[in-house]
Write a protein that binds this DNA or RNA. Structure first.
Lengths: 209, 209
DNA sequence: GTGTGTGAATGTTTTCACAGCG
DNA sequence: CGCTGTGAAAACATTCACACAC
């Protein structure tokens, strides 16, 4: 079953997972119809997406919420804890640490780094900010899996290269940059400004018909 | 020129805009080749994307950086200021206000609201938190264009309905929910947990080949 | 009857490849 | 020559529609 699953499908699975989590103490069984209604996704799409991974439904009924949750948990790799390293503890990095609703979802920020010598040694939250020079050791010793990058754009590429050279294969990038990485490394960019700029395009379209 | 531009194209335009901004005091002219190299996007794709809006290049040369920036600014509606209203001033909302690199890009958070009576009247940053009940007046009086939603998931749909009923047509949603809206309203969801969950999928794939 | 799973059909996006222009 | 702009082709994603299972 080493079929190549489209990336768009992977992007939707976490949405299914979340809705099912909400649904789990509300109902036993849910149809692709109902699921789709809550997510603005067609039932056919949901069924097709799930069919890439197996047959999880009961014909004529729908999907057992708990069972499907279990399947998705396994598919997405959520049946374990993940250790996350934060690089960049400026305002943004601190906000991420502080806000961080990540814990309940199995993600734990277990190390923090910065390139700025003035930050090193300082305590943010529970963590002591370390010099990025010792990143490599920390990744090995603490089994860090995922990097969150919250450094200024000018440093992003360098920091990401460093994470990659330490063996990190998944990066959540908050820096407004489009870093280049080897193809076996995944980078997910989050950038509110880019998001807002797509929104203004649509606003402009509405006002000039 | 009322052609239907694919949404994926709109999602890429802000990326072009940003790279061009970086490039503008470095070079006069840039080719789709170079632009693509910086963004991991094929030159053909860039040319095609731009061709939806007009002919901006010089054959045999490339694109004049400044001119293309101007065109994109106009296309994306970035040639004006936009007023943003923040709903939800809990930890996340405060982080957004505090972090906010939005100003330099022409986005200004000019009002803050909350549903929690204990927050109302408090000062966050420059703003006084207002009762969501008076949102409607504020939207009209201050010409608010965009809503940022940073409330708990259980309130997200209600808050978004309210924004929409006040005439807001563009929403940046940080709440982990997939709200339903009328089709002339744009919602862009930002959810780090969903992002991380797509990353873990790929990590899991690497470890079980 | 009801809703899943799925091949086939449709629609959309990306890539190709080349004519034409500076 | 070098690179844009663009129809046409290829790749990809979504929707349809129905056989089949409960």
């Amino acid at each position: 079953m080493a079929a190549p699953i489209p990336e768009v499908v992977i992007l939707r699975l976490p949405l299914y997972f979340r809705v099912l989590t909400l649904l789990q103490d509300e109902t036993e069984i849910v149809s692709s119809q109902e699921l789709g209604a809550r997510l603005q996704i067609t039932p056919a799409q949901i069924r097709k997406d799930l069919s890439y991974f197996g047959k999880f439904g009961i014909q004529g009924k729908g999907y057992k919420v708990n069972q499907l949750l279990g399947e998705l948990r396994q598919i997405l790799g959520l049946d374990r804890k993940w250790s996350v390293v934060l690089v960049g503890v400026g305002r943004l990095g601190r906000a991420i640490l502080d806000y961080s609703t990540l814990g309940p979802h199995g993600f734990h920020i277990t190390a923090a780094f910065d390139t700025d010598p003035r930050q090193i040694g300082k305590k943010v939250g529970q963590l002591i900010v370390q010099d990025i020079a010792v990143l490599s050791d920390a990744v090995k010793n603490q089994d860090l899996n995922i990097g969150i990058v919250a450094v200024p754009p000018s440093e992003a590429q360098e920091v990401i290269d460093r994470l990659v050279s330490c063996g990190i294969k998944a990066i959540l990038n908050y820096a407004p940059a489009a870093p280049a990485v080897h193809s076996d490394v995944r980078v997910y960019n989050i950038d509110p400004v880019v998001a807002l700029q797509t929104l203004t395009y649509h606003l402009k379209c509405l006002s000039t018909p």
